[in-house]
Amino acid sequence: MSTKLGMKHFWPFFWKLANPKVFMRWSGLCLPWIIALTVLCLGTGLIWGFFLTPDDARQGSTVKIIYLHVPSAFIAINGYFVMVLGSLFWLVRRQHVSVLVAKASAPIGMTMTVIALTTGAIWGQPIWGTYWVWDPRLTSFLILFLFYIGYVALWAAIDDQDKVADLTSVLALVGAVFAVLSRYAVIFWNQGLHQGTTVTIADGVSQKNISSIFFQPLLLSMIGFGLLFLTLLLIGARTEIRAQRLQVLEGLERLK
């Protein structure tokens, strides 16, 4: 492998991953390292965040749920993004691995949405005085959850693998358009009380809405959650590929 991994080298390699064998080899090689990194980042980030930062002046120790809430929300959205990209690649390039990655991404993203909503509710009780408000951001996440459910349910409803891959991909793309539309409709519908985005990255410079004492462990747990997503995604996709292989081998056996 060349030491300079420029874009020129990246894309040909990326497309090669669409071959199940290549994908299995590379994901198998990377997985132990990614798991180790996940444990390291998530462990450090969460322990640092939970035990080694002071309580917030106003919010007390409740603020510490932020180390679960913000990263899970971040992954919930990006999981949907991965799902849409995988679906798009399938419709354009007709290679199974991409749609299997999309399929694997959905339940992870869905779970992350539930985690984000639950931790948000637990945090909201003492701070806002209620578990749930119809705030735009909360509402958008609930809607995102509904979109995830639809996608997963469609996968479960049809047996023919190629057909269901097409249909779920179409749903993912149309769903993405309507999810974005819902987001803006909901903002229009109710200006909310949720605080602004916690971490915004603009022009490569981190602008912080919270003080850096909380920010550093938060960043670490966000990276940790990102790696956790990658780990689960790879394991999920590898399982799906093995299931496909099993189907093909069974088919071959029946032909003999």
Binding site: K21, R25, H96, V248, L249, L252, L255
Partner: peptide, 14 residues
């Protein structure tokens, strides 16, 4: 000669 579309899934994976 009946066959099956394998989309490379018949290759040994590991």
């Amino acid at each position: 000669a009946r066959s099956i579309v394998t989309s490379n899934f018949d290759e040994p994976l590991e």
